[in-house]
Amino acid sequence: MTTPPPLIEARDLVKSYGAGQAPALRGAILHLAPGEILAVTGPSGSGKSTLLHCLSGIVTPDSGSVRYGSERLDQATETRRSELRRTEFGVVFQFGQLVGELTALDNVALPLLLAGTSRKKAHESAGEWLERFGVRGQAALRPGEMSGGQGQRVALARAMVTRPKALFADEPTGALDSLAGEQVMTALVHAARESGTAVLLITHDAQVAAYADREATVRDGAVAGETGAEVIR
């Protein structure tokens, strides 16, 4: 059996924020296979989030490479990386990624609207995704008017509305209680499996990591070990 080529592959990533500061990444190597769910764990400050930012093209590494298919993300222009974020990648953070001024429906429709989809179509898809994550009833509310769990599900709907190839989730349940967290994680896993979306899931919580097929542990800016096996779907 041959393993398919990875969806995203990062090699020898080095990244530091400003001179004089210890690098957040020092030679991290990681790959994400198509459709797999990979948990990245590690103590706080180990460089997990920076790794996610590099792989999703939000920041560019100081050195090393990030390959997405045949494309070098670390060398892509800001415009191209923005385009990828609204077409082929989805991003979910612990909180704060929703636009506070927009309703849940507009928030979910945002990537489509930015890409030039007509308002009607965008709202249609957005409504469907809200439905799937069980927050249709909150469509007209703004993020400040929802509970944390509802907000995260709206954020997930927004990340998934473009049926991305990869979903980047940084502590998506970090600000939630365990029941709300469980609902968000279950919704995330089901949606990702159905759309064939690969997920890079950052967490410090083993119970969240247990939703993943594979776990990579980051220590001091490098991947220190992996558990679990790549699941080919």
Binding site: H190, A206, T227, G228
Partner: peptide, 16 residues
């Protein structure tokens, strides 16, 4: 840790 996580994955899969 790997052994524990493997078991936890099984349990999580069963529960979801």
């Amino acid at each position: 840790r790997a052994a524990h996580l493997t078991r936890m994955r099984e349990l999580t899969a069963a529960k979801t």
